[in-house]
Design a binder for these strands. Structure first.
Length: 426
RNA sequence: GGAGACGUGUCCGAGUGGUUGAAGGAGCACGCCUGGAAAGUGUGUAUACGGGAAACUGUAUCAAGGGUUCGAAUCCCUUCGUCUCCGCCA
């Protein structure tokens, strides 16, 4: 959530930046400023009245102490009429506040100045590519065929148990998931991230904290009986670990990593995009999250990009890094790099990670702060990235490494998987 | 799921209607003391928002939300959470 104090001082910048994000309702900024003005006026009026009531009440207390009941009674009468006035003013204030709070949540984060202009994924900027695309034979198979051939995932039974998009991993398919999760977590903890295993459902306040609500209500599974949401990413519970806390400046940066299954409703997709593992409702992901000093967040963003890039290199996958354009960025992000791997049989780039700096957008909602040298309370910056989302990594590993006699796996996975590759059926 | 107890500041802990944002202690910060440290000693030590150039000041906050009252940490209701006992259970 943007800070109104910032909007007050930089309204024009805010509008200009929102335009870069293709935010339609720019007039909301002026509306908010007007609301803010009214709100503050109303607040001053209400509090002044409250102050006089408080003073009178204290006086009554003292009069009672002295035993001067008559004067006290008289005071009570006075206060009673003031209270009527107060309740009117209060009602107006509450209405204004509610309106203001609802509206300011609708403003997305401001994009960083380096964000490219654009509306669609085509406008994203390719920062760099790495790894070599394999030369596959003409009869190379897409991963969903390979999955069948080696009996790694049973999509049909998953669909019967739950619904489409809920894969049932099996045999070496299940073991490969476990190996990847373990490897990714080890890779992250070696880089200084603390491992967490969070709840997979969160309450409403937590979902607001990272910006999933109210923006993405429809994308999360909602357990209505208890008011919980299935997490769409570990980012949601883990970033909130420090919500409503004032952390020591010396404890920054806080580096956290977590493996969780992720649940996404993802309505509205169809066709080849959702074939096999390309898009599913439940998938595994290892996430990295940092809470950092504001002055360092863009350095940390680069560091996290390099961290994920190295991981893709170790997995020996061809990848590219995109800087997302204003129109393709998420609501809460100030700058986002997407990572895509090339899945050679499909001849498709698949997104496997998204690394973002949210600056104070999330921490303002969650109230994660520190005290600076002068003792002032400041919001920290939050960042996160996937390292990595598993299904599309699996798709690319299968497709790119397929041979006549099986799937070869990159060296780093051999120990975790307990074999150098997947050969034959089971 | 049933019965009971409880939820106060960074922590411990007092406080059952009236200058209580909250005693006392610990911790922490700064100063004094010391050759240096410890001990001792003095001062300070929440957050948010509003007003103000600032000093400062107003309001709110004793789990959360509502209510009673001129006045609530203190009384009432609801919710959430913790603990104990019982039940159930991986």
């Amino acid at each position: 959530m943007l800070q109104i104090s910032y909007i007050r001082l930089h309204a024009d910048t805010v509008k200009e930046r929102l335009a870069v994000k293709n935010f339609k309702d720019i007039s909301l900024v002026d509306e908010l400023l007007q609301l803010d003005e009214n709100l503050r006026q109303q607040k001053t009026a209400t509090e002044t009245l409250q102050a006089s009531i408080n003073a009178a009440s204290k006086e009554i207390g003292m009069l009672m102490g002295k035993g001067d009941k008559d004067t006290a009674e008289q005071k009570k009468q006075e206060v009673a009429s003031l209270k009527n006035e107060l309740s009117e003013k209060n009602a107006a204030l509450v209405a204004l506040e509610e309106n203001f709070n609802n509206k300011i949540l609708l403003l997305p984060n401001l994009p960083h100045t380096s964000v490219p202009l654009g509306k669609t994924p085509e406008d994203n900027e390719v920062v760099r590519e790495g790894g070599a695309k394999p030369n596959l034979p003409a009869n190379a198979q897409p991963h969903w065929e390979l999955i069948k051939k080696y009996d790694l995932i049973d999509f049909e039974t998953g669909a019967r148990l739950t619904g489409s998009g809920f894969p049932l991993y099996k045999g070496k398919g299940a073991k490969l998931q476990r190996a990847l999760i373990q490897y990714f977590l080890d890779y992250n903890t070696q880089a200084g991230y603390t491992e967490y295993l969070p709840p997979l459902m969160v309450n409403e306040a937590t979902a607001y904290g990272t910006g999933q609500l109210p923006d993405k209500e429809g994308q999360m599974y909602h357990i209505t009986a208890d008011g919980f949401y299935m997490i769409p990413t570990a980012e949601v519970p883990v970033t909130n670990v420090y919500s409503n806390e004032i952390v020591k400046e010396t404890s920054l940066p806080i580096k956290m990593t977590a493996y969780t299954p992720c649940f996404r409703r993802e309505a509205g997709s169809f066709g080849a995009d959702v074939r096999g593992l390309n898009r599913v409702h439940q998938f595994d992901k290892v996430e990295i999250i940092q809470l950092v000093h504001p002055a360092k967040s863009y350095d940390v963003l680069e560091e996290m990009v390099q961290h994920v890039e190295k991981l893709l290199q170790l997995l020996e996958l061809p990848y590219r890094i995109l800087r997302l354009c204003g129109g393709d960025m998420s609501f809460a992000s100030a700058l986002t790099y997407d990572f895509e791997v090339f899945s050679a049989a499909q001849q498709k780039w698949l997104e496997v990670s998204s690394v973002s700096n949210f600056e104070t957008f999330q921490t303002n909602r969650m109230k994660v702060r520190y005290k600076d040298e002068s003792g002032k309370t400041q919001l920290v910056h939050s960042l996160n990235g996937s390292s990595l989302a598993l299904p599309r990594i699996v798709a690319a590993l299968l497709e790119n490494n397929q041979t006549e006699d099986g799937i070869h796996l990159p060296k780093v996975l051999h120990n975790y998987f307990g074999a150098t590759g997947i050969e034959g059926i089971i």
